[in-house]
Structures are given as C-alpha cells and as structure tokens.
Design a protein around this nucleic acid. Structure first.
Lengths: 200, 200
DNA sequence: CCACATCTGTAGTGAACACTACATTTCTGG
DNA sequence: CCAGAAATGTAGTGTTCACTACAGATGTGG
C-alpha cells in the first residue's frame, strides 16, 4: 500500500543542530528560519517531522537527555555521596564550558520565563531538571541507608543543593565564566559535603 | 520658553509595573501591549519616557537594583564572612519567594539567551549580577585581611560560589520551589563556609 | 493671553513571526 | 510499471510584533 517518499534528511543530525540553536538563543529567541537553516531543511519538513516549534524543542530535549544519560549513570555509580557530588560538579564544570556546545545548560538557557502562549516551555524544562534532582535524591537516600552519609543528613536537601549549584554554574557559564572559574565553584561547593560524610 | 505639557503618570510606579511584567515573562516574552497595559499608559508615552523596549528594561533594572541596595548593604555589614553568607542566602530565600513579586530573580528571569537583535539583554543582566559578586568578593577580601577567614580561603572563589548558589535558588524559585526548600539549600550551602571560617 | 514645548490617545506602519497550501518529486506494494 | 503515500521546495498566509505619524490637549514663560 505504498510507503511514500522517504525522508531526505537525518532526523538526529537535524535535531543536534536545532538543539544548538535553542541552546544559544532560547526557545523564544530561536526563529523557525534559524532552525530550518541550521537543520538544512525547509519549514514543511520540520512541521511534518516534529509538528510544531514546541514539538521540535521537546524532541531536542529528549536528545539532550540522551546525551547526558551516560554521564549521569557514571555519576550515580560513584562509590560514595561525596564522590557522586564531586563527579557531578566537576563533570558539569567541564561540559558546560565545552567549546563543542554553547556555554551553559540547555535546560536553563532554553527559557525560564516565556511569553503568553509558550508557558509550557518553562514547565517542561523545569520538569526535566527535576528528573536529575530526583536521581540525586534517591542516590543520597541510598548513601544514607549505607551509612555513607550521617544519620542527620537530609538526602532531599543535598539533592536540591547540588541541583541549585549546577544550575548556578550553568548561568555563570552562559555569561562567560571559564572552566577554571566553574571548577572553583565546584570545589567550594564540595566542602558542604565534608561534614555529613562518614569518616573514611 | 515654555515647559510643555507635564507627564500624566508616575514614572516610578509605571516602572514597578513594567518590572513585574519583565520578571514574569522575560524580556522577549513581554510585549509592548502587556507593558503599556500594566503601566496604564499608551505606547507613545512609553517611548517618550524610556526610548525603547530595551531602554525600559534598563530603567526597570535600575529600579530593581535600587530596591536591593538596602538589603545588600545590610548583608555586607554583617560582622563576619560567615554571617554575610548567612544573611545573603536566607534573605535571598525569602525575597525570591515573596508573594508580592514574581518568583525568582529579575536578573535571571529577564533573559539568559535572546534572539538576534537583543543580544545586549543577557549581557546587561550578567553585568548587573556581576556587581553583586564584586561586592561579595571585596567583602570577603576584607574578611581575610581581618583574619576572619583563614589564610587559605579564596575570596574570589567564595564570592563566585555564593553568586552561583543565589542564582540557582532563583531558578528553583521560578520553577515552583517554596521558601522552605530554598532555606534548606541555604543551610546546606552555608556548611561550605565552616571550614574556612576562623574559630570563634 | 499668546507662542511654544511637551505629553497624550488614536490609529496605524512595515517587518518578522509561526505556520501552511499546493504542485512536484520520490519512493513502495502489487 | 503503475497507483498511491509521503516528503520536498516554492511561495505564500494571517497575525503579532516593536515602534511611530499626527492631531489635539495641557501645561509654562513672557
């Protein structure tokens, strides 16, 4: 029953380009013209494949999450809560200043506040940031059960704290902070873990 | 030689309303129609008084800084580096969840990434965030000279760290974190100061 | 009270926006 | 090899955007 003309572009490669545009200009600052230009396609192809500008963003966010999955797995597999935090913060310092990408974090740069009609976008980004925080919370709860964190430690507060620091680092990166500056922030942040980590 | 018809609206009150619109929707998400509506004036009055949308933003930012000046002075006058950090972080937790304002910080919500033609906006916001960081750096340098911080402490890194945490808290507030959650972040953050504060 | 400077409201301006109609092309199943 | 299904390129669509021309209103200095 006929399958139709096949897509002439690589959707994943196109998404990578779209991701970069959203990353650099934010959701509202990115225009369809910029996106189609970067993706090397025409508007009808974009809409046929992704439905809308917001659909394209979500697809780009999925791809962003995919890229990060390996990193997060590595982080969460670190042996102690303190090691988790260290891997997370120093890793973030590096990735957010990786010259291969726009500086900062797409989940922050994408848009914290949007105009009428795009109110979903900040929600969507916040939900995805919350996923990372949840992973950290669970990891720290386990660390507490393991006796790796002291009995008075609050896994939820620690996860929130780590999440806040990483977001803050992302904003600093996007406004020009270099890798060394972010590493300094990471090093200071880690001191907050010393007290509640079990002696080793 | 004739002074012309006097302005019929209170520029400061109008700026407060404009500030709120920018705060809630970001620079690009805020439309002139929303701004004039909130300010209770018509576009020609806006342009006569502030020159452009970007000029209006700068005026609103000036007013925002003014509002914060008293708070920052209080923070910087705290007796020790640790007390400065505590006042800063707990104060920020409160102001960023003050129901009288949109959640978060205008200097972050205003726009981290913007479209072509508004590239100045992120720069402008970053420059104003850097002012606070500079104030903190100077205050911590003084604390080190006073012997209030240990000889190995790095005032610049501490200021950057505090700046990163406050920005992170602002983003969390804007995505729905309540006051108690931000205070938890503040409390954890403060632990990073313990080690490098002189015993008392 | 008059000349003039400035503000105000109405009603637009051109440009840029997200999105799409349509004719054409390129494939697959039978 | 043909009928149908889906993607493509061209060239728009209506809407919304930041911004403004203009005429009338309202004040001050002389």
């Amino acid at each position: 029953m006929a399958m139709g003309r096949p897509r002439a572009f690589d959707a994943d490669a196109a998404l990578d380009e779209a991701m970069e545009v959203f990353w650099r200009h934010g959701y509202e600052g990115a225009t369809i013209a910029q996106l189609t230009d970067a993706m090397g396609i025409n508007p009808p192809s974009l809409y046929a494949a992704f439905g809308s500008k917001e659909g394209l963003l979500k697809a780009a966010l999925d791809r962003y999450s995919g890229r990060r999955a390996a990193f997060m797995e590595d982080v969460l597999n670190a042996p102690t809560a303190r090691a988790v935090a260290e891997k997370m913060l120093l890793g973030i310092a590096d990735t957010q200043t990786d010259p291969a990408n726009p500086p900062g974090c797409l989940l922050v740069q994408g848009g914290l506040a949007c105009g009428t009609g795009s109110e979903n976008v900040p929600f969507e980004l916040a939900a995805r940031r919350a996923q990372t925080e949840d992973q950290l919370r669970e990891r720290f709860a386990k660390a507490k059960a393991d006796g790796d964190l002291t009995a008075t430690a609050d896994p939820s507060a620690l996860a929130r704290y780590l999440s806040a620091v990483t977001v803050g680092m992302g904003v600093m990166a996007s406004s020009g902070a270099d890798r060394e500056a972010l590493r300094q922030v990471a090093v200071v942040s880690l001191k907050a873990f010393d007290e509640q980590s079990a002696a080793r």
